[in-house]
């Protein structure tokens, strides 16, 4: 009987939303293989979160608590998740492809002697003949990969798997030894310089407004921010403007940044480099505003407005305000 283990992600006592997408992927995998799934939760003082996860249809929630797990570090968490994989007898390990998931999961795979497929966007086949679709070459190519090891490890892209809804019921909660060898740890968490924002997270937002080089300078980004705030959306950016230091790195939408799939994506002054398109073309409705009619962004846009953004974005914002008010 195969078993799936979902690696839950929590930081500062809060579960990451992406964890529920990972559970969604685990449910798909369970349907295809007849496996059941467990969830591993690591940290310190996290009993409440285990209760919260108990309503998501897992067989067992393995809770790993240890002083070394109070703050996330790759070394300690990989050891703890490895202990959970052993306890559950997992043949599949699934984590979200977040910063933490990307950082930690390969170490778990190494400990398990397992192959890993990163950034999986689709699970194909059934039973013992599964393959995984994952973007390569900055999303220009979709690779179909298979894993040849007895244990298969996946990180999954949140925007491609529906977040699992609670199904009620309650999973068994089992506290197990984290199995972290404190003497082996040579890294410590020092701190987080958090980007404070009242806006929704890029990867969760229903509306994303992104800006590119066409904005000409950093101060003009406020045009994008005003529009985003009016629509209750998140603000994104291209790699070029992140590189230029106009906006924080974690605003970057693209293959090397965040992959988003909101209901509405508005690209302002963005030409549409392949690597940017890879991060947003799953959006439901795409609007492009650019004065260059040849810009590649128009090839993926549902609605294109060829115009000077400095004229039409303020107009759009004020007319939206008028509609709202």
């Amino acid at each position: 009987m195969s078993k799936i283990l979902v690696l839950a992600e929590q930081q500062f006592g809060k579960l990451a939303n992406a964890t529920f997408s990972a559970i969604g992927a685990a449910r798909q995998l369970a349907e295809k293989t007849g496996a059941s799934y467990d969830i591993a939760l690591a940290g310190q003082g996290i009993g409440g979160l285990a209760e919260q996860l108990g309503a998501y249809g897992a067989g067992t929630i393995y809770v790993l608590e240890d002083a070394s797990l109070e703050k996330y570090t790759a070394q300690a968490y990989a050891q703890a998740f490895h202990s959970a994989a052993k306890a559950s007898g997992a043949t599949f390990v699934v984590a979200a492809a977040t910063a933490i998931g990307k950082d930690c999961t390969p170490r778990v795979a190494a400990r398990l002697g397992a192959g890993q497929a990163s950034d999986v966007v689709a699970i194909n086949g059934s039973g013992g003949a599964l393959t995984y679709t994952r973007p390569m070459w900055a999303g220009n190519v979709l690779g179909e990969v298979k894993i040849n090891t007895d244990i298969q490890v996946l990180t999954v892209r949140g925007s491609d798997f529906d977040a699992a809804e609670a199904t009620g019921g309650s999973s068994a909660v089992e506290k197990i030894a984290a199995g972290v060898d404190a003497g082996s740890l040579r890294m410590t968490y020092v701190g987080l310089d958090a980007v404070e924002s009242s806006r929704p997270a890029l990867t969760d937002a229903d509306v994303v407004i992104s800006g590119g080089r066409g904005l000409k300078e950093a101060s003009n980004f406020k045009l994008v921010e005003e529009l985003a705030d009016l629509l209750g959306g998140a603000v994104g950016a291209t790699r070029a403007v992140v590189d230029a230091g106009w906006v924080p790195n974690d605003w970057q939408v693209g293959q090397t940044g965040k992959v988003v799939a909101p209901k509405l994506y508005i690209a302002v002054g963005i030409s549409g480099a392949i690597q940017h398109l890879a991060g947003m073309k799953g959006s439901k409705t795409i609007v492009a505003i650019n004065k260059d009619p040849e810009a590649p962004i128009f090839q993926v846009a549902d609605y294109g407005l060829v115009a000077d953004l400095f004229e039409v974005v303020p107009e759009l914002t004020s007319k939206l305000k008028a509609r709202a008010g």
Partner: peptide
């Protein structure tokens, strides 16, 4: 441990329509 068994192009997205004003958008 991991083998690529095939490649395919990502689904292409149809270009939509061009609108000529903010009101039309």
């Amino acid at each position: 441990k991991v083998e690529v068994v095939g490649y395919k192009a990502p689904p292409s997205r149809q270009a939509g329509v061009t609108v000529d004003s903010v009101d039309a958008l």
